[in-house]
Design a protein around this nucleic acid. Structure first.
Lengths: 335, 335
DNA sequence: TCGATGATCGAAATCGTTTTAGGTCTTTCT
DNA sequence: AGAAAGACCTAAAACGATTTCGATCATCGA
């Protein structure tokens, strides 16, 4: 089959241990034999078995990714997808592979699945942080980083949701809007921060906010967005602009607006959150807040690897990456 | 640390081998001790180490996924993304994890990366089948299935591109179009089959085809699509309908059409291929051919696992899954 | 010249499993 | 009763690496 270290040792006329040490840079092997081993490895096409190595060293160079979401969108999730992609690429650059930790594999919990595969650390990015299995993993023995969720003494990376929301709200106000509605996503810290920022910017601008203008919604759920939007449009004094929890939901909102016979942005304005690329190619181009998914994914990978490789010099921390405004065509001038 | 089989054996007062056999359903262990072992395993929270098991058995229950694409879209690729998602889910259902095989990991080729991780089999889905490393993998010792690429004596799964293209072309003709342009994707078997089907349906319908109407393009590249569309629109006798290689490219085409001051579908019609869900929520809803990405992903996983688990009863074969027409709003009636 | 010191190398244990080849004891058959 | 056959279990050898602990040998200072 594939050549093992024993074959290599035989080919060199050396012992297995010497060969191993030569390859792993131990000091007690002469430069001459080291070079000989290298050459032989090259010509035999030798590569060590990650599995055998892991068994002995306890390090697998494998990062777990816990990703579960309601929306069934999987890899193609408009926000998590690109985050995972960046995470994976950065991990690979550092010599790690990734494996997805999934529910119900052979009756194992998430944590057990990690131990089963001897995962070195895990990145949790999902919508079910209240799941007991997720909590078990969060308080378990493995290095962990989370995305968009702060847990006691664990590292987290997320967008500067406050700054992003401020950016958007200020922009909308600058376009002349005074009657602004806000539909939030699933309850949680992210939604909380955003709505708080929204309220504060309005207050600071001296703009009154009807409580009927702020409604609960769901992330990445166009159907819910459609329903909530319809309700808001039916208000006695409807808003001139609606802020949606994300771009996907915005699509549902736009649908409801069109169904009501209104034009975007002439009759009513709408904005999203996330900045999914493909929607920037559709008409009308959605005005939204771009989350730097690449920076988030890369940051998560770096932090996790750091936690693994230098546990003594690294501490849990909350990292934030700034958002930017994507000015599209869905927020009109209001006077 | 985590409990090993030795701990379990000690707790039961049995030998390691008996415990192993009890857990693995060997016949030469009494039902009584088997039950005892099961109970002890449960209460100690014992789960075997996948790594140690792999080392001994040579089976890792790990499927490699080779996925590289030009477009940098990664997981969020409109066609490959959903395919991979379905592949992953089906693999997990069968007790397999997946790991991505990537270029340049520690200076390893794809094949070496597979061997490094003791991958049981690999699913190749990418756009670079001409890459020597991909070819090495294709002719290597591991079980392989491919998506959208037929290789000598390897299993392949793909859409019934002929049938899909026929469906669309007939539909467009039925809507009254006679001057139909076709922009194809990157050169290759898939593109070939589609354009052939397109030509044949036209011929059978007795509709003449201007050679200037069929142009080369690129998959998932809106910029190229825009350029090619512009050129076609500038023809002395422009078509009334343009068929694009995929939905993403269609976006570029629509852009060029709008830039030319034409309306969709009143002035000119356009259709895509793939059926990406999010675009079905945008206006105007794109008329396109839906590829059953879920069936493709699941089929790939099943076939691969079958090749792994029952190599003697399984043979390489080409599997095809039918497409369906997604009637949107971008192909108008022509008279 | 002799012991000490370094420089290289190798033997063997180990990681956590699986699996082969026996081993022991009871039962059954003749 | 003696042998054959089952039933049940264990010892030990792998799998392919890493790593500890010695072993060997040449060199060197005194």
């Amino acid at each position: 089959m594939t050549t093992s270290i024993r074959d290599l040792a035989a080919a060199c006329g050396l012992s297995v241990s010497t060969v191993s040490k030569a390859l792993n840079g131990y000091p007690d092997v002469s430069e001459k034999t080291r070079e000989q081993v290298r050459r032989a490895a090259e010509s035999l096409g030798y590569h060590p078995s990650a599995i055998a190595r892991s068994l002995k060293t306890g390090r697998s160079f494998n990062l777990g990714v816990l990703y579960s979401d309601d929306t069934q969108s999987g890899f193609t999730h408009n926000y998590f997808g690109p985050v995972l992609q960046a995470f994976k690429q950065e991990a690979e650059r550092r010599g790690y592979d990734i494996t997805f930790i999934s529910k119900g594999q052979q009756g194992m919990t998430y944590l057990q699945h990690c131990q089963f595969r001897s995962i070195d650390g895990v990145c949790i990015v999902c919508s079910h942080f209240s799941d007991p299995e997720v909590q078990e993993l969060l308080s378990g023995p493995l290095p962990v980083v989370t995305v968009d969720y702060v847990f006691n003494n664990r590292s987290c990376i997320q967008s500067e949701n406050r700054q992003g929301m401020e950016l958007l709200t200020r922009y909308v106000i600058a376009r002349g809007h005074r009657k602004i509605a806000y539909i939030s996503g699933d309850e949680g810290a992210v939604s909380g921060v955003r709505v708080t920022a929204f309220r504060r910017v309005l207050r600071e601008a001296g703009i009154p906010l009807l409580e009927a203008y702020v409604a609960g919604g769901r992330y990445h759920d166009p159907a819910t967005a459609r329903r909530v939007t319809r309700k808001i449009l039916a208000l006695p004094d409807p808003p001139t602009c609606i802020l949606m929890p994300d771009d996907t939901a915005a699509l549902g909102g736009m649908d409801a607006i069109r169904a009501a016979g209104l034009r975007i942005p002439e009759d009513i304005s709408i904005a999203g959150f996330d900045g999914v690329p493909i929607l920037q190619m559709c008409k009308p181009r959605l005005t939204t807040v771009r989350q730097d998914t690449e920076a988030i994914g890369i940051g998560a990978a770096r932090k996790l690897i750091h936690l693994i490789e230098a546990p003594d010099t690294t501490f849990p921390e909350i990292l934030s990456v700034p958002c930017s405004l994507l000015e599209g065509e869905t927020v009109g001038l209001q006077h």
